[in-house]
Simulated scan of single mutants.
Amino acid sequence: MSLSFKAFTESFPLAREFRISRGAKTQADVITVLVSDGHYYGWGESVPYARYNESIKSVLAQLEDIKGAFASVCDTEDLLTLLPAGSARNALDAALWDLKAKVKGKSVASLANLYTVQRCYTAQTLSIDTPEGMKNQALEIKNAPLIKIKLDEHQVLERLAAIHEASPQSRLIVDANEGWQVAMLNELLPDMAKLGVALIEQPVPAEADEELAGLNSPVILCADESCHVSADIERLAKYYQAVNIKLDKTGGLTEAIRAYHAAKEHNLQIMIGCMVGSSLAMAPAYGLCADVQFVDLDGPLLVAQDRADGFTFDQGRMIQPEPFLWGLPGQYGQQGLARLWNELPD
């Protein structure tokens, strides 16, 4: 069986400006990949990320460079040597898993020996704003079980206090996106614990991880920008109590499963995270959420208009509807993907 693929870009306007410590964005620019064996079609989505020296242009170039070699690919394992970890490999990996589900007549969860996700609550993300603005964002989501808060180095406790006042029952995740120093973290930790913060993502720059050694934190510290593939886990276990597994970092579900098992082996808590994208980008990661401590797959809630037949959300609960856009057996969506394939240039 010879496989081929086509890649193109799409943009999803966001529901509101999304601001983190490194800057702001108003749309999600994604790479969409279609894979075909000449009869069935699979698709996947990834989000190039500038923090990892990726752009739409560079990822498309990566994909173009391996088109010839891709014809001999038989399974997602083959991609691990064909492409490095990153969003190019993620999009192809997702499309291959989706194709495999169609060809084998089994769900991706079954093919990958993953637990069936019965119930999943995702964090809902607040972007950086004034304390009052972030309080209003928290009020809009009405005591969500889990709230993720983007913060820079300014007004940290003022912002957290405003959010805690608006949503006192919510557990809070703070994401500093490498924006703090260890001295600042040490100073903030006692008050953050009192304000309901359950986990802090990547408080310090990735190259400063070693400075966290021996820190007795009352809040779980989670590696994000430092954690890419399974080989990173053993080192990170010296400094963190949790890792954030994102498929755009691992280069797809195939390597994400390895990272998941490595984290379990090192007694680390696990967060399944995402970049800002549509339900198509979240779908492969969702399969890992049955037995993890934190889920952050609210990308579809951040875009103004999600893809058809994507996830639905009810007060933080993430629900996979039927029909669904990815990873299930059957002919659902095949006509639409075939039509799209024929419209795209070779």
Rank of each mutant, 00 (worst) to 15 (best):
residue 187 E to N: 13
residue 3 L to Q: 09
residue 276 V to R: 06
residue 286 Y to W: 14
residue 73 V to K: 03
residue 53 N to A: 15
residue 309 D to Y: 15
residue 152 D to T: 05
residue 37 D to A: 12
residue 32 T to G: 00
residue 13 P to C: 11
residue 95 A to W: 10
residue 39 H to Y: 07
residue 48 P to V: 08
residue 69 A to Q: 14
residue 133 G to N: 01
residue 16 R to H: 15
residue 188 L to K: 08
residue 198 A to Y: 09
residue 14 L to Q: 08
residue 64 E to P: 02
residue 295 V to M: 03
residue 344 L to N: 09
residue 30 V to I: 10
residue 71 A to I: 15
residue 63 L to T: 07
residue 47 V to G: 01
residue 111 L to Q: 02
residue 145 P to A: 03
residue 14 L to A: 07
residue 123 A to T: 11
residue 26 T to N: 13
residue 210 E to D: 08
residue 33 V to C: 04
residue 38 G to S: 07
residue 83 L to H: 03
residue 205 P to Y: 04
residue 99 L to M: 12
residue 255 E to P: 00
residue 138 A to I: 12
residue 16 R to M: 09
residue 28 A to P: 05
residue 117 V to I: 13
residue 177 N to R: 11
residue 306 D to H: 11
residue 186 N to I: 07
residue 48 P to N: 05
residue 225 E to G: 08
residue 293 Q to V: 00
residue 56 I to M: 13
residue 321 P to E: 08
residue 120 C to A: 13
residue 303 V to E: 04
residue 60 L to Q: 12
residue 90 N to F: 08
residue 53 N to Y: 12
residue 94 A to Q: 07
residue 178 E to V: 10
residue 73 V to R: 00
residue 302 L to N: 09
residue 151 L to K: 06
residue 163 I to N: 03
residue 272 I to Y: 07
residue 174 V to L: 14
residue 57 K to S: 10
residue 311 F to P: 12
residue 66 I to Q: 05
residue 342 N to E: 15
residue 77 E to Y: 07
residue 256 A to G: 08
residue 42 G to Y: 05
residue 327 G to S: 11
residue 62 Q to R: 10
residue 333 G to N: 01
residue 345 P to F: 02
residue 171 R to S: 13
residue 7 A to L: 03
residue 57 K to Q: 13
residue 44 G to P: 13
residue 268 L to F: 10
residue 194 K to H: 06
residue 206 A to P: 00
residue 130 T to L: 11
residue 130 T to K: 09
residue 217 S to T: 08
residue 169 Q to R: 12
residue 44 G to H: 04
residue 297 L to Q: 06
residue 14 L to M: 13
residue 28 A to I: 05
residue 218 P to F: 14
residue 54 E to R: 01
residue 160 L to C: 13
residue 288 L to Y: 11
residue 139 L to N: 12
residue 104 K to E: 14
residue 183 A to H: 12
residue 53 N to F: 15
residue 74 C to T: 13
residue 147 I to W: 06
residue 223 A to C: 06
residue 100 K to S: 14
